[in-house]
Design a protein around this nucleic acid. Structure first.
Lengths: 182, 182
DNA sequence: CAATAACCAACTAAATTAGTCAGGAATTCT
DNA sequence: AGAATTCCTGACTAATTTAGTTGGTTATTG
C-alpha cells in the first residue's frame, strides 16, 4: 500500500464528487479549477477510477463524473489502490539470502502492518466524511461564493433526465448570478 | 502524510534493529544484504533517522546502529515522517479560488482523514510487532541459517562494554560456523 | 451544426527515488 | 603504531514517477 499525492488528489476529487452527488455530475474542469490540479492529469486519474468501477462518466453538455456506487459503499482504501498500482513488495522474491521457503521475517512483519493499514482505510467510506451535519449546506454556500453553479441552465436539463425535480426559480437565479460574473 | 518505498525501507530496517536490539548493534551492511537495499541508500535513510533521534550510531568494529529509545516508545508514524519530509499539503495556499478565509472544504476533509491516519500509525509501536511470542527465537534461528552472526568474536567484546554477559561457548560455536562458510 | 465534456494517446519537464563514488572520522584489534 | 571496521558526509548519476501539455476523437445536447 502506497500513499502519495496521487492518492490524495484522487481522494479529494472523490470527496468532491460525493459532496455534489445529489446535484448531478461534476466536471473535471470544475475540480481542476477548485483544487488546482491540471485537467489532463485529472483525466488520467479518472481513467483509472473508471476502470476500477468507482465512477461513471456522463458525456455531453451537463455531463461530468458521478459516483458509480453510493458514497457509503466506497472506501478510501479502494480509491488509493485504484490509482497507484502496488509494486513489488518484497525485493527478495523467494530467492536470495533470507529464504526459509519464504520471505524475510521483517518483510513478514511489514506485510502484517501493511494489512492493518489497509484494513483501517477500508473501514473509512466517503459517506462518513460527507454526511456529517452541516457539510452539504457549507459546500453549497461555498460553491455560490466561488462562482461554481451545479444547477446552471443546461445542466438542469441533464439532471432532469429522470433523477430529480428541479426548482426552476433557483436555476434562474443561479444562472443570472453566473451571467453577472462575466 | 506520505507512504512510499522509502518509508517501507525505513520501517523494515527499524524492525530489524528492534529484533536484534538486545544482541547489540546491527550494521547497515547486514541490513543491506538481507533486505536487498543498497548500502549507501540505507546510509542516507539512517542519516535522517539519526537526526530525528530514532537511532544511535556506534562506530568502529563491532559497531552499527541501535535504537535510541526502547522499541515500545517508537511509533511507525515517527519513522515514516522522519524519512519523507511532508511537502505542501494544500496547493490553494490561502489564495486562489476556494477561499473562505481558509481552504477548500474537500481539503479540510482530507486533512481530517490524514490526521486519522497519522493517529492510527502513532498508536502502533515497533515493540508491538517484535515482542510477539516466538518472534525472537525465529529471528535468531534464521540469522544462523543465512550466516548472519550477531555474536561474532569481535562484536562480543563490543557488547561486553557493560551491557551483557556473553555465553562464551555460544560465541565460539558461532565463530566456528562462520569460518566454515568461507 | 455548434458547444460541451468525456475519452484517448503520445510526448515533455520536473521531481523523487535509488544507487554510485570517493573520501573522512571514530573505534577496535593486532 | 598501524590495519581493519563501520559510521558518516557530500556530490554526482541513472531510473522511475509525477505532473502537465498537446492534439486529437466520440457522445450528447441545444
Amino acid at each position: 500500500m502506497r500513499l502519495s499525492t496521487k492518492g490524495r488528489y484522487s481522494v479529494t476529487a472523490m470527496l468532491d464528487l460525493a459532496i455534489h452527488d445529489k446535484a448531478g455530475p461534476v466536471t473535471l474542469a470544475d475540480i481542476s479549477q477548485c483544487q488546482g490540479i491540471s485537467l489532463s492529469y485529472l483525466e488520467q486519474l479518472f481513467a483509472r477510477l473508471r476502470k476500477s468501477g468507482l465512477v461513471k462518466g456522463v458525456r455531453g453538455p451537463g455531463g461530468g463524473y458521478r459516483l458509480a456506487r453510493p458514497a457509503s459503499e466506497i472506501s478510501i482504501a479502494e480509491i488509493i489502490c485504484s490509482v497507484d498500482e502496488n509494486v513489488d513488495v518484497t525485493r527478495c522474491k523467494g530467492e536470495g539470502n533470507c529464504q526459509d521457503g519464504g520471505k524475510c521475517l521483517t518483510h513478514e512483519l511489514w506485510t502484517n502492518l501493511s494489512n492493518k493499514l489497509h484494513e483501517f482505510l477500508s473501514g473509512i467510506t466517503l459517506a462518513q466524511f460527507v454526511e456529517r451535519p452541516g457539510i452539504p449546506e457549507l459546500s453549497m454556500q461555498r460553491d455560490k461564493m466561488i462562482g461554481r453553479f451545479v444547477l446552471a441552465k443546461k445542466q438542469a436539463v441533464a439532471i432532469n433526465r429522470g433523477v430529480f425535480n428541479i426548482n426552476k426559480e433557483l436555476v434562474a437565479k443561479e444562472l443570472a448570478a453566473k451571467e453577472a460574473l462575466r
